[in-house]
Simulated assay, not measured.
Amino acid sequence: MSDSPDVELPRGVALAWGIASSPQRGPKREMSVEKIVDAAVAIADAEGLGAVSMAAVAARLGFTPMSLYRYVTAKDDLLLLMQEQATGLPPEEVREVDGWREKLQVLYGAQMHRYLEHPWLLEVPITGAPATPNSAAWIDAGLVALDGTPLTHDERMAVSLLVAGHARWAGMVTVGYARTQGAAGVDESQFAAREDALFRDLITADAYPALRAAIDAGVFLGDSDPFAFGLARSLDGVAAYLAGAEEGRRDAPIAWPRDDNADIAGDKRFRDARKAVHAAEKALRDARRLERVAAREAKSRLG
């Protein structure tokens, strides 16, 4: 750990690194940060993140909520520690495969597995990169996978974030499907057929021509994994960029997006104008919805 005196760690981060001071009073052997986090994760796995509260965790452990606060002083700290535990460490398999692409694909699959194992991870608010040991280990594993390539450190970080983003997006949809499947008691083919039927009923060629063509082509009934396809094509792009970098060709760094109106966001006339734009956009969406309904009803009467 750094000896820098300039950084005051939040208690949750300090707890994750094991450098927070222990409470001087309270139940000793019967209570610990580890036991509190174990209980909170068990509740979240069984009932969802919304069921986790200091009171619920205390009740599971047989203590009062106040006794927990001696160890974990805020629910946000508890969420951070839950995320840290459920995230775990990157798989050892990533060390056993050769090639940067193969290593990143292993990390992608392992991250997906974490979301399926602990779906509530997707509900934890993202406020930045968690500065915790396990989260750091995943970032490090992505960077190690790209070690030896001509990519700069910034570019390696960008590729690592790309893979993590693919895993999170795929996890969101896969977990949503798993929840629907469990609730409805249907298998994958039944779910796909029901989803296809729903879209066929709602999506018209007049309003959404490209989407309707995809539905008619059976896009919801296919066996291909769109997320694995997207990751593969993204990594194709990385491979092409690597080839160029090896020959001395690389793109200039891309800056973060900037809101050109940030400096006037507090101006009342500007805020009122922006609200008027949002209201007009909503009115247009509502009008188009009514138009689609009227068109469907007219075709039904005339058909």
Score class of each variant (00 low, 15 high):
71 Y>V: 00
91 P>M: 03
84 E>H: 05
238 V>I: 04
111 Q>C: 09
90 P>M: 09
77 D>Y: 13
114 R>C: 09
59 A>K: 15
303 G>S: 13
200 R>S: 08
169 W>Y: 13
282 K>Q: 14
268 K>E: 11
295 A>H: 09
90 P>Q: 09
278 H>I: 12
39 A>D: 03
65 P>E: 01
202 L>Y: 11
239 A>M: 10
7 V>M: 05
144 V>K: 07
115 Y>D: 01
86 A>I: 04
173 V>R: 15
125 P>D: 11
125 P>R: 06
203 I>L: 05
266 G>A: 05
303 G>N: 10
5 P>N: 00
147 D>S: 13
243 A>G: 14
77 D>G: 11
146 L>I: 03
82 M>P: 04
228 A>P: 05
170 A>V: 02
196 D>M: 04
218 G>S: 00
63 F>H: 10
284 L>Y: 15
49 L>I: 04
240 A>G: 07
236 D>G: 03
62 G>V: 04
252 A>N: 10
117 E>I: 03
98 D>I: 06
276 A>C: 08
8 E>C: 09
301 R>N: 12
240 A>M: 07
143 L>M: 14
243 A>F: 07
110 A>R: 04
219 V>W: 05
27 P>A: 06
223 D>I: 09
274 R>P: 05
178 A>F: 06
209 P>K: 05
139 I>F: 12
27 P>C: 06
17 W>G: 02
99 G>Y: 10
174 T>Y: 14
77 D>E: 15
205 A>G: 03
172 M>L: 11
206 D>K: 08
121 L>K: 06
62 G>F: 00
1 M>Q: 05
103 K>S: 07
173 V>F: 15
205 A>R: 05
94 V>N: 03
3 D>R: 05
104 L>N: 01
129 A>M: 11
210 A>G: 13
131 A>E: 14
48 G>T: 07
150 P>V: 06
297 E>V: 12
78 L>I: 06
50 G>C: 06
75 K>S: 00
291 E>D: 13
4 S>V: 11
128 G>T: 09
231 L>S: 00
31 M>F: 13
271 R>S: 02
69 Y>M: 08
264 I>F: 03
94 V>G: 02
32 S>M: 10
257 P>G: 06
219 V>L: 02
29 R>M: 04
281 E>I: 14
191 F>T: 10
263 D>I: 11
163 V>H: 02
38 D>E: 15
153 H>Q: 14
284 L>K: 12
147 D>V: 10
196 D>F: 08
81 L>C: 02
